[in-house]
């Protein structure tokens, strides 16, 4: 065997120097850009794994530096300007489609991820109470914790935390202000006024006496019940007592529906 003297060993060692790993910098730096969104201009930060952080420009008074500083505080990663937007981002910010968008949710706890995943299943124009998200996330009693997680949602608009509302029918808080929450829901053709009117009468669930199914009032199955067949309920329990079963689409109750009916299809 060749080269067993120390000189040839040190020579061969020097040849073990690697070229820089391609893409190493991409794994270290986050990228940021400004893009139009449903709430006006927004700042977005992302990594190779997906979008990490979204804030409306309004919420940081248009200051990209303040956005960058908030990002660094939260993610401990340096930022550099992006060349272009990741696939699907621009459509998702405009609210047209989120199908191909990747999110980078590393660094979040399992519970935080589960809350965001459950929230991302709420269809446009519909709302669900915090308790529904808690149940879908597998922690039915952690209702307040859901509110805390969503108040810190790293990717608002992309994960539609504006569709999570109070159980009493009020829209509740939103990280960019409750006026924007209402604006977003109206833009999605949500029946905001109808839900508020029902809530004033103490009605939080709507059933049809032809199908015997009870829904959240924003569920499309509830919205198409004609007035003659529509019955309001204060609780799902009251509807069950009257012989209704919970809607399998909007899943207003835990008792008969498993918490993770289709964990495989998040979107």
């Amino acid at each position: 065997m060749m080269g067993n003297d120390l000189d040839s060993i040190t020579g061969a060692l020097a040849d073990l120097t690697a070229p820089a790993a391609p893409g190493l910098a991409d794994r270290i730096f986050g990228s940021w850009l400004a893009a139009p969104s449903r709430l006006g201009a927004a700042f977005v930060a992302f990594t190779g794994a997906g979008v990490q952080f979204v804030r409306s420009a309004e919420s940081v008074r248009g200051d990209a530096g303040a956005f960058a500083e908030a990002y660094r505080d939260r993610f401990g990663r340096p930022l550099r300007p992006a060349d272009r937007a990741p696939a699907g981002l621009l459509g998702a910010l405009r609210g047209t489609s989120a199908a191909s968008l990747q999110l980078d949710l590393r660094g979040l706890s399992d519970f935080e991820r589960d809350v965001l995943t459950a929230t991302s299943r709420i269809p446009a124009g519909q709302t669900r109470p915090y308790g529904w998200v808690a149940r879908e996330a597998g922690r039915p009693r952690a209702v307040r914790a859901v509110g805390t997680v969503l108040a810190r949602n790293p990717v608002p608009l992309l994960v539609p935390c504006h569709r999570v509302v109070r159980a009493d029918g009020l829209l509740g808080d939103y990280m960019f202000g409750s006026a924007h929450k209402e604006q977003l829901l109206r833009a999605e053709q949500g029946n905001v006024d109808e839900v508020a009117a029902l809530a004033r009468q103490g009605v939080h669930f709507v059933g049809s006496d032809t199908t015997g199914v009870v829904c959240f009032p924003t569920c499309p199955h509830a919205r198409r019940i004609t007035l003659a067949h529509r019955h309001g309920f204060r609780t799902v329990g009251a509807a069950l007592v009257s012989g209704y079963r919970p809607c399998r689409y909007c899943r207003p109750a835990a008792e008969v529906i498993p918490a993770h009916p289709d964990a495989g299809s998040d979107r």
């Binding site: 073990l16 820089a20 270290i28």
Partner: peptide, 11 residues
């Protein structure tokens, strides 16, 4: 810094 040191660090 990354540009200047990535080769050594990665090696």
């Amino acid at each position: 810094l990354v540009r200047a040191h990535e080769r050594v660090v990665y090696s």
